[in-house]
Design a binder for these strands. Structure first.
Lengths: 148, 148
DNA sequence: CACTGTATATCGTGTTACGATATATTTATG
DNA sequence: CATAAATATATCGTAACACGATATACAGTG
Protein backbone atom coordinates (compact mmCIF):
# COMPACT_ATOMS: atom_id res chain seq x y z
CA UNK A 1 0.00 0.00 0.00
CA UNK A 2 1.33 3.43 -0.95
CA UNK A 3 1.52 6.33 1.42
CA UNK A 4 -0.89 9.21 1.17
CA UNK A 5 1.42 11.60 -0.60
CA UNK A 6 2.09 9.17 -3.40
CA UNK A 7 -1.58 8.37 -3.67
CA UNK A 8 -2.45 11.99 -4.02
CA UNK A 9 0.26 12.52 -6.65
CA UNK A 10 -1.11 9.59 -8.60
CA UNK A 11 -4.60 11.01 -8.55
CA UNK A 12 -3.32 14.33 -9.88
CA UNK A 13 -1.47 12.58 -12.65
CA UNK A 14 -4.52 10.52 -13.52
CA UNK A 15 -6.86 13.48 -13.56
CA UNK A 16 -4.38 15.49 -15.61
CA UNK A 17 -4.21 12.75 -18.19
CA UNK A 18 -7.94 12.46 -18.37
CA UNK A 19 -8.30 16.18 -18.94
CA UNK A 20 -5.57 16.11 -21.53
CA UNK A 21 -7.35 13.40 -23.51
CA UNK A 22 -10.59 15.27 -23.18
CA UNK A 23 -8.98 18.44 -24.40
CA UNK A 24 -7.55 16.66 -27.40
CA UNK A 25 -10.96 15.45 -28.38
CA UNK A 26 -12.43 18.91 -27.95
CA UNK A 27 -9.66 20.36 -30.06
CA UNK A 28 -10.31 17.90 -32.79
CA UNK A 29 -13.96 18.82 -32.65
CA UNK A 30 -13.28 22.55 -32.73
CA UNK A 31 -10.98 22.17 -35.70
CA UNK A 32 -13.43 20.00 -37.57
CA UNK A 33 -16.18 22.56 -37.01
CA UNK A 34 -14.01 25.46 -38.13
CA UNK A 35 -12.93 23.63 -41.24
CA UNK A 36 -16.56 22.95 -42.05
CA UNK A 37 -17.18 26.70 -41.75
CA UNK A 38 -18.85 26.64 -38.33
CA UNK A 39 -18.01 28.05 -34.98
CA UNK A 40 -17.62 25.21 -32.49
CA UNK A 41 -20.68 26.33 -30.59
CA UNK A 42 -22.76 26.45 -33.74
CA UNK A 43 -21.83 22.86 -34.33
CA UNK A 44 -22.98 21.98 -30.84
CA UNK A 45 -26.22 23.82 -31.36
CA UNK A 46 -26.93 21.97 -34.60
CA UNK A 47 -26.11 18.68 -32.95
CA UNK A 48 -28.42 19.20 -30.01
CA UNK A 49 -31.22 20.45 -32.21
CA UNK A 50 -30.95 17.62 -34.70
CA UNK A 51 -30.15 15.00 -32.07
CA UNK A 52 -33.17 15.63 -29.86
CA UNK A 53 -35.68 12.84 -29.24
CA UNK A 54 -38.45 12.80 -31.81
CA UNK A 55 -41.33 14.22 -29.77
CA UNK A 56 -39.24 16.79 -27.87
CA UNK A 57 -40.15 20.37 -28.79
CA UNK A 58 -36.80 21.93 -29.56
CA UNK A 59 -37.03 25.40 -28.11
CA UNK A 60 -34.42 27.94 -27.08
CA UNK A 61 -34.77 26.76 -23.51
CA UNK A 62 -34.24 23.16 -24.54
CA UNK A 63 -31.12 24.03 -26.48
CA UNK A 64 -29.84 26.12 -23.59
CA UNK A 65 -30.20 23.26 -21.14
CA UNK A 66 -28.52 20.82 -23.49
CA UNK A 67 -25.66 23.17 -24.21
CA UNK A 68 -25.26 24.26 -20.62
CA UNK A 69 -25.77 27.89 -21.55
CA UNK A 70 -27.95 30.67 -20.21
CA UNK A 71 -31.02 31.46 -22.25
CA UNK A 72 -29.73 34.74 -23.51
CA UNK A 73 -26.47 33.24 -24.71
CA UNK A 74 -28.46 30.66 -26.60
CA UNK A 75 -30.62 33.31 -28.21
CA UNK A 76 -27.47 34.95 -29.50
CA UNK A 77 -26.05 31.67 -30.74
CA UNK A 78 -29.29 30.96 -32.58
CA UNK A 79 -29.26 34.50 -34.01
CA UNK A 80 -25.82 33.97 -35.48
CA UNK A 81 -26.69 30.53 -36.79
CA UNK A 82 -29.90 31.77 -38.36
CA UNK A 83 -28.02 34.57 -40.10
CA UNK A 84 -25.72 31.99 -41.62
CA UNK A 85 -28.63 29.89 -42.78
CA UNK A 86 -27.84 26.92 -40.57
CA UNK A 87 -30.99 26.95 -38.52
CA UNK A 88 -34.59 28.19 -38.72
CA UNK A 89 -36.72 29.66 -36.01
CA UNK A 90 -40.51 29.41 -36.20
CA UNK A 91 -42.90 30.58 -33.53
CA UNK A 92 -44.79 27.75 -31.93
CA UNK A 93 -48.46 27.84 -32.95
CA UNK A 94 -49.62 26.49 -29.60
CA UNK A 95 -47.52 28.79 -27.44
CA UNK A 96 -46.50 31.97 -29.13
CA UNK A 97 -43.79 32.65 -26.58
CA UNK A 98 -41.77 29.70 -27.77
CA UNK A 99 -39.49 29.49 -30.76
CA UNK A 100 -39.13 26.09 -32.38
CA UNK A 101 -35.73 25.40 -33.89
CA UNK A 102 -35.04 23.32 -36.96
CA UNK A 103 -32.01 22.79 -39.18
CA UNK A 104 -31.94 24.14 -42.69
CA UNK A 105 -30.84 21.93 -45.55
CA UNK A 106 -27.41 23.49 -45.32
CA UNK A 107 -27.33 22.89 -41.57
CA UNK A 108 -28.24 19.25 -42.04
CA UNK A 109 -25.57 18.75 -44.65
CA UNK A 110 -22.78 20.28 -42.61
CA UNK A 111 -23.83 18.41 -39.49
CA UNK A 112 -23.98 15.16 -41.39
CA UNK A 113 -20.42 15.54 -42.52
CA UNK A 114 -19.18 16.56 -39.09
CA UNK A 115 -20.99 13.71 -37.41
CA UNK A 116 -19.29 11.14 -39.57
CA UNK A 117 -15.92 12.63 -38.82
CA UNK A 118 -16.69 12.69 -35.13
CA UNK A 119 -17.85 9.12 -35.03
CA UNK A 120 -14.62 8.03 -36.69
CA UNK A 121 -12.46 10.12 -34.41
CA UNK A 122 -14.28 9.02 -31.28
CA UNK A 123 -13.82 5.46 -32.32
CA UNK A 124 -10.09 6.17 -32.27
CA UNK A 125 -10.02 8.14 -29.06
CA UNK A 126 -12.57 6.23 -27.04
CA UNK A 127 -10.16 3.60 -25.73
CA UNK A 128 -7.83 6.21 -24.27
CA UNK A 129 -10.69 8.17 -22.80
CA UNK A 130 -12.23 5.11 -21.23
CA UNK A 131 -8.89 3.97 -19.85
CA UNK A 132 -8.27 7.40 -18.34
CA UNK A 133 -11.71 7.32 -16.77
CA UNK A 134 -11.20 3.87 -15.31
CA UNK A 135 -7.99 5.02 -13.71
CA UNK A 136 -9.75 7.93 -12.09
CA UNK A 137 -12.40 5.57 -10.79
CA UNK A 138 -9.73 3.49 -9.10
CA UNK A 139 -8.97 6.47 -6.92
CA UNK A 140 -12.54 6.94 -5.78
CA UNK A 141 -13.15 4.38 -3.12
CA UNK A 142 -14.60 1.81 -5.48
CA UNK A 143 -11.41 -0.11 -6.13
CA UNK A 144 -11.75 -1.85 -9.46
CA UNK A 145 -9.28 -4.24 -11.02
CA UNK A 146 -7.11 -2.28 -13.40
CA UNK A 147 -7.72 -3.62 -16.88
CA UNK A 148 -5.09 -2.39 -19.27
CA UNK B 1 -31.15 -3.77 -40.63
CA UNK B 2 -32.33 -0.15 -40.46
CA UNK B 3 -32.38 2.13 -43.43
CA UNK B 4 -29.80 4.86 -43.83
CA UNK B 5 -31.96 7.72 -42.67
CA UNK B 6 -32.74 6.03 -39.37
CA UNK B 7 -29.12 5.09 -38.89
CA UNK B 8 -28.01 8.64 -39.39
CA UNK B 9 -30.68 9.92 -36.97
CA UNK B 10 -29.47 7.44 -34.40
CA UNK B 11 -25.92 8.59 -34.74
CA UNK B 12 -26.96 12.20 -34.24
CA UNK B 13 -28.89 11.26 -31.15
CA UNK B 14 -25.98 9.27 -29.81
CA UNK B 15 -23.45 12.00 -30.44
CA UNK B 16 -25.80 14.59 -28.93
CA UNK B 17 -26.12 12.53 -25.79
CA UNK B 18 -22.39 12.08 -25.51
CA UNK B 19 -21.79 15.80 -25.83
CA UNK B 20 -24.51 16.49 -23.31
CA UNK B 21 -22.89 14.23 -20.74
CA UNK B 22 -19.53 15.75 -21.47
CA UNK B 23 -20.94 19.23 -21.05
CA UNK B 24 -22.46 18.27 -17.73
CA UNK B 25 -19.12 17.12 -16.47
CA UNK B 26 -17.43 20.28 -17.67
CA UNK B 27 -20.10 22.36 -16.00
CA UNK B 28 -19.60 20.56 -12.75
CA UNK B 29 -15.90 21.21 -13.08
CA UNK B 30 -16.32 24.88 -13.88
CA UNK B 31 -18.64 25.34 -10.93
CA UNK B 32 -16.33 23.53 -8.57
CA UNK B 33 -13.44 25.71 -9.68
CA UNK B 34 -15.41 28.93 -9.30
CA UNK B 35 -16.59 27.94 -5.85
CA UNK B 36 -13.00 27.25 -4.86
CA UNK B 37 -12.16 30.77 -6.02
CA UNK B 38 -10.51 29.82 -9.31
CA UNK B 39 -11.27 30.46 -12.92
CA UNK B 40 -11.85 27.13 -14.68
CA UNK B 41 -8.73 27.61 -16.76
CA UNK B 42 -6.65 28.33 -13.69
CA UNK B 43 -7.79 25.02 -12.29
CA UNK B 44 -6.72 23.28 -15.48
CA UNK B 45 -3.37 25.00 -15.36
CA UNK B 46 -2.74 23.91 -11.79
CA UNK B 47 -3.78 20.38 -12.63
CA UNK B 48 -1.45 20.07 -15.59
CA UNK B 49 1.43 21.62 -13.72
CA UNK B 50 1.00 19.46 -10.64
CA UNK B 51 0.04 16.36 -12.59
CA UNK B 52 3.06 16.27 -14.87
CA UNK B 53 5.37 13.27 -14.82
CA UNK B 54 8.17 13.64 -12.28
CA UNK B 55 11.11 14.38 -14.59
CA UNK B 56 9.19 16.58 -17.02
CA UNK B 57 10.30 20.21 -16.93
CA UNK B 58 7.05 22.11 -16.58
CA UNK B 59 7.49 25.13 -18.79
CA UNK B 60 5.06 27.51 -20.41
CA UNK B 61 5.31 25.51 -23.61
CA UNK B 62 4.57 22.28 -21.77
CA UNK B 63 1.51 23.78 -20.11
CA UNK B 64 0.36 25.21 -23.43
CA UNK B 65 0.53 21.85 -25.15
CA UNK B 66 -1.28 20.13 -22.32
CA UNK B 67 -4.00 22.73 -22.18
CA UNK B 68 -4.36 22.99 -25.92
CA UNK B 69 -3.62 26.70 -25.85
CA UNK B 70 -1.29 28.96 -27.79
CA UNK B 71 1.85 30.00 -25.96
CA UNK B 72 0.77 33.58 -25.49
CA UNK B 73 -2.58 32.60 -24.02
CA UNK B 74 -0.75 30.41 -21.57
CA UNK B 75 1.57 33.23 -20.58
CA UNK B 76 -1.47 35.31 -19.75
CA UNK B 77 -3.07 32.50 -17.79
CA UNK B 78 0.13 32.05 -15.81
CA UNK B 79 0.32 35.81 -15.24
CA UNK B 80 -3.14 35.85 -13.72
CA UNK B 81 -2.47 32.77 -11.64
CA UNK B 82 0.81 34.13 -10.37
CA UNK B 83 -0.88 37.38 -9.33
CA UNK B 84 -3.33 35.35 -7.28
CA UNK B 85 -0.54 33.40 -5.65
CA UNK B 86 -1.53 30.05 -7.11
CA UNK B 87 1.61 29.43 -9.08
CA UNK B 88 5.28 30.43 -9.15
CA UNK B 89 7.49 31.11 -12.10
CA UNK B 90 11.23 30.67 -11.81
CA UNK B 91 13.69 31.06 -14.64
CA UNK B 92 15.38 27.81 -15.51
CA UNK B 93 19.05 27.87 -14.46
CA UNK B 94 20.13 25.73 -17.39
CA UNK B 95 18.19 27.61 -20.04
CA UNK B 96 17.35 31.15 -19.16
CA UNK B 97 14.70 31.39 -21.84
CA UNK B 98 12.51 28.92 -20.04
CA UNK B 99 10.22 29.54 -17.13
CA UNK B 100 9.64 26.66 -14.77
CA UNK B 101 6.22 26.54 -13.18
CA UNK B 102 5.43 25.29 -9.71
CA UNK B 103 2.38 25.46 -7.46
CA UNK B 104 2.41 27.59 -4.36
CA UNK B 105 1.21 26.18 -1.08
CA UNK B 106 -2.12 27.85 -1.70
CA UNK B 107 -2.27 26.40 -5.20
CA UNK B 108 -1.57 22.93 -3.89
CA UNK B 109 -4.28 23.20 -1.27
CA UNK B 110 -6.95 24.40 -3.65
CA UNK B 111 -6.04 21.79 -6.22
CA UNK B 112 -6.09 19.05 -3.63
CA UNK B 113 -9.62 19.91 -2.65
CA UNK B 114 -10.79 20.18 -6.23
CA UNK B 115 -9.18 16.91 -7.19
CA UNK B 116 -11.02 15.02 -4.49
CA UNK B 117 -14.30 16.50 -5.61
CA UNK B 118 -13.54 15.65 -9.22
CA UNK B 119 -12.60 12.08 -8.46
CA UNK B 120 -15.88 11.62 -6.63
CA UNK B 121 -17.93 13.24 -9.34
CA UNK B 122 -16.21 11.34 -12.12
CA UNK B 123 -16.88 8.15 -10.29
CA UNK B 124 -20.54 9.06 -10.52
CA UNK B 125 -20.53 10.24 -14.11
CA UNK B 126 -18.11 7.75 -15.62
CA UNK B 127 -20.70 5.05 -16.28
CA UNK B 128 -22.87 7.38 -18.33
CA UNK B 129 -19.88 8.76 -20.19
CA UNK B 130 -18.56 5.33 -20.99
CA UNK B 131 -21.97 4.11 -22.10
CA UNK B 132 -22.38 7.13 -24.37
CA UNK B 133 -18.96 6.47 -25.85
CA UNK B 134 -19.71 2.80 -26.46
CA UNK B 135 -22.86 3.75 -28.31
CA UNK B 136 -20.92 6.09 -30.55
CA UNK B 137 -18.46 3.33 -31.24
CA UNK B 138 -21.26 1.10 -32.43
CA UNK B 139 -21.84 3.52 -35.26
CA UNK B 140 -18.25 3.47 -36.45
CA UNK B 141 -17.80 0.31 -38.42
CA UNK B 142 -16.44 -1.67 -35.50
CA UNK B 143 -19.70 -3.22 -34.39
CA UNK B 144 -19.42 -4.12 -30.74
CA UNK B 145 -22.04 -5.91 -28.67
CA UNK B 146 -24.09 -3.29 -26.85
CA UNK B 147 -23.55 -3.78 -23.16
CA UNK B 148 -26.13 -1.86 -21.16
C1' DC C 1 30.66 35.69 -33.60
C1' DA C 2 26.91 36.23 -36.97
C1' DC C 3 22.69 33.47 -37.84
C1' DT C 4 18.83 30.55 -37.21
C1' DG C 5 15.77 28.73 -34.10
C1' DT C 6 13.44 28.48 -29.65
C1' DA C 7 11.00 30.29 -25.37
C1' DT C 8 8.60 33.67 -23.37
C1' DA C 9 6.38 38.20 -23.30
C1' DT C 10 3.47 42.29 -24.87
C1' DC C 11 -0.24 44.53 -27.16
C1' DG C 12 -4.37 45.30 -29.72
C1' DT C 13 -8.57 42.96 -31.32
C1' DG C 14 -12.77 40.17 -31.83
C1' DT C 15 -15.78 36.78 -30.08
C1' DT C 16 -18.75 35.27 -26.78
C1' DA C 17 -21.03 34.27 -22.45
C1' DC C 18 -23.07 36.69 -18.96
C1' DG C 19 -26.03 39.83 -15.70
C1' DA C 20 -29.53 42.97 -15.79
C1' DT C 21 -33.40 44.23 -17.86
C1' DA C 22 -37.37 44.39 -21.18
C1' DT C 23 -41.30 42.50 -23.75
C1' DA C 24 -44.71 39.14 -25.01
C1' DT C 25 -47.59 35.43 -23.92
C1' DT C 26 -49.59 31.97 -20.91
C1' DT C 27 -51.26 30.32 -16.54
C1' DA C 28 -53.07 30.89 -11.97
C1' DT C 29 -56.11 33.17 -8.61
C1' DG C 30 -59.45 35.68 -6.19
C1' DC D 1 -62.61 37.47 -16.25
C1' DA D 2 -59.37 40.81 -14.78
C1' DT D 3 -55.16 41.11 -13.06
C1' DA D 4 -51.14 39.16 -10.93
C1' DA D 5 -47.49 35.72 -11.27
C1' DA D 6 -44.88 32.85 -14.07
C1' DT D 7 -42.66 31.54 -18.33
C1' DA D 8 -40.12 32.21 -22.87
C1' DT D 9 -37.55 34.86 -25.60
C1' DA D 10 -35.02 39.08 -26.70
C1' DT D 11 -31.84 43.26 -26.08
C1' DC D 12 -27.94 45.70 -24.37
C1' DG D 13 -23.75 46.84 -22.05
C1' DT D 14 -19.70 44.59 -20.04
C1' DA D 15 -15.82 41.68 -18.98
C1' DA D 16 -13.01 37.67 -19.69
C1' DC D 17 -10.16 35.40 -22.61
C1' DA D 18 -7.90 33.38 -26.56
C1' DC D 19 -5.67 34.79 -30.51
C1' DG D 20 -2.52 36.97 -34.29
C1' DA D 21 1.16 39.84 -34.86
C1' DT D 22 5.10 41.32 -33.06
C1' DA D 23 9.04 41.93 -29.84
C1' DT D 24 12.82 40.40 -26.91
C1' DA D 25 16.04 37.35 -24.83
C1' DC D 26 18.70 33.41 -24.97
C1' DA D 27 20.64 29.01 -27.09
C1' DG D 28 22.76 26.18 -30.55
C1' DT D 29 25.51 25.86 -34.91
C1' DG D 30 28.49 26.76 -38.72
Amino acid sequence: MKNELEESARLLHTLADFRYELRRFLQFSENAAQEAGLQPQQHQLLLQVAGAAHETPVTIAYAASRLGLKHNSTVELVDRSEREDLIERTIDKDDKRRAILRLTRKGRQVLQKLSGEHARELNEMAPRLVRALRRVQMHSGAQVAEVL
